[in-house]
Design a protein around this nucleic acid. Structure first.
Lengths: 336, 336
DNA sequence: CATAGAAATGTAATCCTTTACATTTCGATC
DNA sequence: GATCGAAATGTAAAGGATTACATTTCTATG
């Protein structure tokens, strides 16, 4: 490949100045038709592409946003990412995906992108904002930091948030079980210290309180298939034995159902299971998993729009930042 | 947030030149101990971070590589990405993940990163190299283009490739079925025109040829859960009815097993199923899925190392570029 | 102590684009 | 055709780091 063409090369060939080339590219409306044509031809001839680094340096704006994901392998995040990308690419923004793998060190390394000019803003799907960054935000004068938390809220919530009402959604799931006659319930919860765990747990409790159902159990998981499988044994040892389980996510529900099947316990005949998220594998369990669907695509889209509003790329959207969930009735819950 | 500190601010405070600051940061060995200390203090005082755009512009190198994924939601890719990231971050390289969503337009937009200076190289997980880019590579004089195809090979293979021997792995899976007495086999294949489909199909055929097993069926899927579910009906209508199915990936196998269960067909008693990939959900099917495990983490690591060799960031690794698979015996295949 | 050579540091050019400001060109109007 | 205002274009500075080359400082040796 030859040396890359610069805007200067294009200018020379088109017989105009570099300023005009830049204008012909970005604001074609303000140059003469013939100039535009000449520049276009010169670009085609040279195969010119804008040097992004030079633009970023000059504009002091990267036109890129960072998306921090705790685990890119978690299918739950993928559709949110799709929503983010959809809005981003339509707005000419690049997204940089950072997989923190749950490590603080990596979180910080990625959030550095905010100050080293690599990105203009960040979307946090990891439910955490390192102390150092939070302080920086607090110290910031004028305007919100260009950060939006998505799906998993922050505590304290120092930046805008887009997601669902987890408490209400958990209440919905639990009430669904209660309405079908279940009186001994179990909640397969997420890891301790996680805000989603707390919110869903509290929705579960609220629903039982309201229904006047006193007996329930809690099993602590960590959102993985494995922990769902491990929960099966605990569940079967419970007394009184629960007739229904509300799992805080689908992965654990899927693991639980598989482990129960291995032990000869039938779902939903012996025990009903309802999940949370509606990941794609939820429809391929045996039986298909009844679960709470999160509007993931929409969450991603809304979050990205909100962030762009913060950055000033577009005016802030006025839609809701808590989106509606949907209960997907499939085959894993039976009435008693 | 105050105006960002530049290397000039640091230099002034430390009482040295910008050149020395740069050296203190990148090659601390060549500055005096006291100078290094002064610079470090000044950096701490100002909260200075390198402006990446300026560095990229000056060095003509982005220290970033593009990873093109057809669908980030596919769990298969996540662990490969983890391997890539592991090697990348250890080498100070940033990875830019591009989800092409199978769209040519997006592929091209992302590959533009190679020429607009946003990335120094690309890892292709999508099995495709747009014609325009292939031509550019062919026209390139001196050295290989900084592109490596991963997992899914290119046709023609114009750049280095890292993955597994798909033909041999499919042969392994099929032979496993034959050895367990199955004589009427079915291959649930991937989408037409996909190189993985062809390679796995040919491994399936080879194994049957060698074993002298003539009867087999082919069902065309598209690697999705849905297509696996749809395959169940076709499978049951086949005559003679296959006793075992080799699915070209786990998603389809999982869909197939679920759909068979709905129809009251038992796995593995009535029909055996073997998958391919060993995604995390493979251990939570009922029964747990016997499958071919790809060393995804290792594939990602090797690919990234190979790419860095091409870029010149490190010397090229001399390891194999076709890695070993492993047959995971679980519960979905029975002997006849 | 003079001096050579090595080590440390400094100076200033360079990477490429955008954009404020200056200048030219054009068309319309009197 | 002179003049004015608008439209189009040009000039050159700025953005922040790296690095080739130049210079200074240090160390060791005769």
């Amino acid at each position: 490949m030859n040396k890359r063409a610069t805007i200067g090369d294009v200018a020379r060939i088109a017989g105009v100045s570099t300023a005009t080339v830049s204008r012909a590219i970005h604001t074609p409306g303000i140059v003469t038709e013939s100039t535009r044509k000449a520049v276009q031809d010169a670009i085609a001839e040279t195969g010119f592409t804008l040097n992004i680094a030079a633009r970023t340096l000059r504009q002091q704006r990267a036109n890129a946003v960072l998306v921090l994901v705790p685990d890119i392998g978690n299918t739950f995040f993928s559709e949110i990412l799709a929503g983010i990308e959809k809005v981003a690419s339509a707005a000419g923004q690049t997204i940089l995906i950072g997989d923190t793998a749950g490590e603080d060190r990596r979180e910080l390394a990625f959030l550095d992108y905010l100050i080293n000019g690599r990105s203009d803003g960040a979307l946090l799907l990891n439910g955490r904002l390192p102390q150092a960054v939070a302080e920086r935000i607090a110290a910031r004068r004028g305007g919100l930091a260009p950060i939006v938390s998505v799906s998993e809220a922050l505590d304290p919530q120092v930046v805008p948030h887009v997601g669902i009402d987890n408490r209400a959604a958990a209440d919905l799931a639990t009430t669904y079980l209660v309405e079908r006659g279940h009186r001994v319930l179990c909640h397969l919860a997420g890891p301790e210290g996680n805000i989603l765990t707390d919110q869903r747990k509290s929705g579960f409790n609220d629903a039982l309180d309201r229904a006047g159902v006193p007996a329930f159990h809690l099993i602590q998981g960590d959102f993985t298939i494995q922990s769902g499988m491990a929960a099966a044994e605990v569940l079967l040892s419970l007394d009184p034995r629960p007739t229904a389980v509300f799992s805080a996510n689908d992965e654990m529900a899927i693991g639980l159902i598989a482990a129960l099947a291995m032990r000869g316990v039938r779902v939903p005949e012996d025990v009903s299971v309802i999940g949370f998220d509606d990941i794609s594998f939820a429809q391929a369990t045996i039986p298909p998993l009844t679960t709470i669907r999160q509007p993931r695509l929409e969450i991603g889209e809304t979050a990205m729009r909100t962030l762009m509003g913060l950055i000033g790329a577009v005016e802030a959207p006025d839609g809701p930042d808590l989106l509606e969930v949907e209960l997907m009735e499939r085959g894993s819950v039976a009435a008693i």
